[in-house]
Amino acid sequence: MTLLETRDLTVRFGGHVAVDAVTCAFKAGELTAIVGPNGAGKTTYFNLISGQIPATAGEVLLVGKSLAGLSVSARARAGIGRAFQLTNLFPNLSVRENLRLVMQQKAGIGFAMFSTASAHRAVLERANEVLKTVRLAQKAEFLVKELSHGDQRKLEVGMLIALDPKVYMFDEPTAGMSADEAPVVLDLIRDLKARPDRAILLVEHKMDVIARLADRIIVLHNGALVDDGPPAEVIASDVVQEAYMGKALDLV
């Protein structure tokens, strides 16, 4: 079943077309890797889907319904979830509170004023579960700004796991993580793949990671979708060899 679809999705910044009429559908149970050189428009494509940037033309559909006019928060509640390329958390709140806030939103009690937050045990429990899932239970009381970069990346992914959207969008989730930390995050993403009712979009530069995780690869180049297919085929294709392998070879 198609969960997410973009039709002729386009955005122009002045004269520069950052995303150029991208039409693409993402099915439940599928992990799609999005590749392309720096500046190809991958993050911008995500921004258009999650609503941070309004599209110049085209539309985004979630389970067949257009998201036009919906705010970022409304899209998040509807099932579009996003982890950011640059860590973007609540730095002066504790790790647990970051996750609790997500759970609190999902419980729909954000406007409750006359009960204490700690009285909502179920919300707290669910936050604690995600803490364990992302291996941050030991650091629950730390302020986010006190965490190492790697732990912040784990929490960044944890926020999305807590939100548990229909469509998961990961933007270079392991960027800047050390070789022994990155597998934790990649395992989490692999575990998500077991969910047949979720679609996962993953922007990633490392070809070995993509080859291991992806069911499908799409290639963006200068904002346009230039290739789309099973990993083995796409990696072997001329476009990727040309635009990408230089970079990928360095990493192997």
Binding site: S71, F84, N88, L89, F90, L93, Q104, S115, A117
Partner: peptide, 20 residues
């Protein structure tokens, strides 16, 4: 309350509060 905690989140990072 949950409302108060949300306000803190909005103060801390309104961009992320909106995104969740």
């Amino acid at each position: 309350s949950p409302f108060g905690r949300t306000l803190l989140a909005v103060r801390e990072n309104d961009f992320r509060a909106e995104a969740i």
